[in-house]
Amino acid sequence: MKKARLFDIIGPRMIGPSSSHTAGAARLGKISLLLLGEEVKKARVTLYESFAKTGRGHGTDRAIAGGLLGFSPEDERLRNSFEIAKERGIDIDFEFSEEDSIHPNTARIKVYGESGEIVEVLGVSVGGGNIEVREVNGMEVSFTCEYPTLLVFHTDMPGVISKITASLADEGINIAFMKVFRTSRNNDASMVIETDEEVPKELLGKILECAPGIKRVSTI
C-alpha cells in the first residue's frame, strides 16, 4: 500500500481558503512571472469554469495577481494584491468566461513586460496547491514545476535535442524527465526538460546558440 505523505494529508502552506482556487492560482501567476523573466507591466487574465464561477469568493483573482507580483501561496500580501499592484502601477484585468475549458480550474494568463516582452500561459490547478502548465505562447507543453524546468522553443529539425542535452551534460546537469512536442514535422516545436539540478542562468545563452532553429529558452 502506498504511504501518504504529510503534505498529502495537511496540504500546502497557504493563505486560504482553497488549495486549488487560491494556492494553485498563486503558483500559476508566479510561473507566468518567471517565464516572462522581468517585472509585469500589464496582465490580462481569463478564468474558466469553476475558477470563473467561484473565483472572486475564493480569492482566485487576488491569488493570481499576487503570483504576478512574485508572492508565494503562503504570503499574507496575497489578500492585498490588487492594492499593491495599483501602487506599483501594474494593470491587471480579469475576465470570467462562461466557456468550457480543458479543466474546471483553468486560467489563461497573458503578461506584458516592461521591455515589451509578452508571454501567454494556459495552466490548470489540479488540487492540493499543485498545478500543470499546458501551453506557453500557444505551444503545447506539460510541466508541473515540481522539478527545475528548462523550456526550449525551436524549429523541429535533426540534432537539436542532442545538442541541448549535450550542453546540460557538459555542466553535470542530470535530466529527470523530458518531453518534446511539435505542431508538425519541420515546424514549431517545444521541449520540456525537468532536471535534478538547477539550470544556471548563464547556461541559457549557450543553449540558445548551441543549434540552429532555437528561438527561446526559459528556466523555472
Rank of each mutant, 00 (worst) to 15 (best):
Ser97Phe: 06
Ala189Ser: 14
Leu122Ser: 00
Glu171Trp: 12
Ala189Gly: 02
Thr219Gly: 07
Thr195Ile: 13
Glu135Pro: 07
Glu39Lys: 14
Ala4Pro: 00
Glu99Ile: 05
Gly16Ala: 09
Met191Glu: 03
Arg216Leu: 15
Gly37Tyr: 10
Arg44Trp: 06
Glu135Tyr: 13
Phe181Asp: 05
Glu132Tyr: 02
Thr183His: 10
Asn130Gln: 14
Phe153His: 06
Phe96Cys: 06
Gly70Val: 02
Lys86Arg: 14
Lys53Cys: 00
Gly59Gln: 03
Thr195Ala: 13
Gly138Asp: 07
Leu151Glu: 05
Phe96Leu: 08
Glu194Ser: 11
Ile9Thr: 06
Arg44Cys: 09
Gly11Thr: 06
Glu74Thr: 04
Thr106Pro: 04
Glu76His: 01
Lys206Pro: 06
Lys201Tyr: 12
Val136Ile: 14
Arg13Gly: 05
Pro73His: 09
Glu76Trp: 02
Lys3Arg: 10
Lys41Trp: 12
Lys163Cys: 14
Ser81Glu: 10
Gly129Ala: 13
Leu28Ile: 11
Ser50Phe: 01
Ile90Leu: 10
Phe177Leu: 14
Gly16Pro: 15
Lys3Gly: 07
Asp61Leu: 09
His58Val: 01
Met14Ala: 02
Arg134Trp: 03
Val180Asn: 12
Val136Ala: 07
Phe51Leu: 01
Lys215Gly: 04
Glu83Phe: 03
Ser167Asp: 07
Thr144Met: 05
Asn105Leu: 12
Arg27Glu: 11
Ala43Gly: 11
Leu78Lys: 06
Glu132Leu: 01
Phe94Cys: 09
Phe181Cys: 10
Gly16Arg: 07
Arg88His: 07
Leu28Ala: 01
Asp188Asn: 15
Arg13Tyr: 15
Ser142Thr: 03
Glu83Thr: 03
Ser32Pro: 13
Met139Gly: 04
Lys163Val: 09
Asn137Met: 06
Ile10Asn: 13
Val119Leu: 15
Thr219Cys: 11
Pro17Thr: 08
Ala107Cys: 04
Ile15Phe: 03
Ile15Gly: 02
Gly205Ile: 12
Arg77Ile: 04
Phe143Glu: 02
Val119Tyr: 13
Thr144Pro: 00
Val152Phe: 08
Phe143Asp: 05
His103Cys: 08
Val40Ala: 15
